[in-house]
Simulated scan of single mutants.
Amino acid sequence: MVMKKAITLVLIILILFSSFPTQSNAMSDSQSAAIQTLLNDACRISGVPGMSISILDEDDVFFFSSGYENLEKGIP
Rank of each mutant, 00 (worst) to 15 (best):
S52Y: 14
F62D: 08
P21D: 00
S54T: 12
M27D: 01
L71N: 05
A26M: 11
S28D: 05
G47S: 03
L38K: 01
I12Q: 15
S19R: 03
V2Q: 09
L56W: 04
S54E: 05
I15K: 15
I13T: 12
I53S: 00
K5E: 10
K4M: 06
I15R: 13
I13G: 10
E69A: 14
K5N: 07
I12C: 14
E69S: 12
L71A: 09
F20Q: 00
A33Y: 09
I35Y: 00
D29F: 12
S54L: 08
Q31G: 14
M27C: 11
P76C: 02
S19Q: 09
D29S: 09
I53M: 01
S65W: 13
D57F: 08
I7Y: 02
P76A: 06
T37V: 07
L14M: 15
T8M: 02
A34C: 11
L11P: 00
Q36A: 14
M51F: 04
L39S: 00
I45Y: 13
S19N: 07
Y68T: 11
I55Y: 06
L16E: 15
L39F: 03
S32D: 11
Q31F: 04
K5R: 06
M27S: 10
D59R: 01
I35G: 00
E72W: 01
S54K: 05
P49K: 08
V2N: 10
D60K: 05
S30F: 08
E69Y: 07
V48M: 07
S52F: 14
V2S: 10
I13A: 15
V10D: 08
I15T: 15
Q31C: 13
L16S: 13
I12N: 15
N40F: 01
S52C: 07
K4Q: 08
F17E: 15
V61M: 05
A26R: 09
F63K: 08
T8A: 07
L71D: 11
N70P: 01
S65I: 02
M3F: 07
L71I: 14
N25K: 05
V48Q: 03
L9W: 04
S65Y: 13
I7A: 10
C43K: 14
I55M: 05
L16F: 10
G67M: 09
L71V: 13
E58N: 09
D60T: 02
D41K: 11
I7L: 11
L56H: 09
I12K: 14
S52R: 11
G50R: 00
I15Y: 12
A26Q: 10
F17M: 08
A6P: 01
Q23P: 00
I45Q: 13
F63Q: 07
D57N: 08
L16A: 14
N25H: 06
A26H: 10
S66C: 15
K5L: 08
S28M: 06
S32A: 11
N40A: 07
F17C: 11
T8F: 05
T37I: 09
A26F: 12
S66R: 04
S65K: 12
L9T: 03
G67F: 04
Q31A: 14
S32E: 13
F62Q: 10
E72M: 04
S30E: 11
M27E: 04
I15L: 14
E69H: 09
K73N: 09
K4W: 02
V61Y: 01
N70E: 08
D59C: 01
S32M: 12
G67W: 03
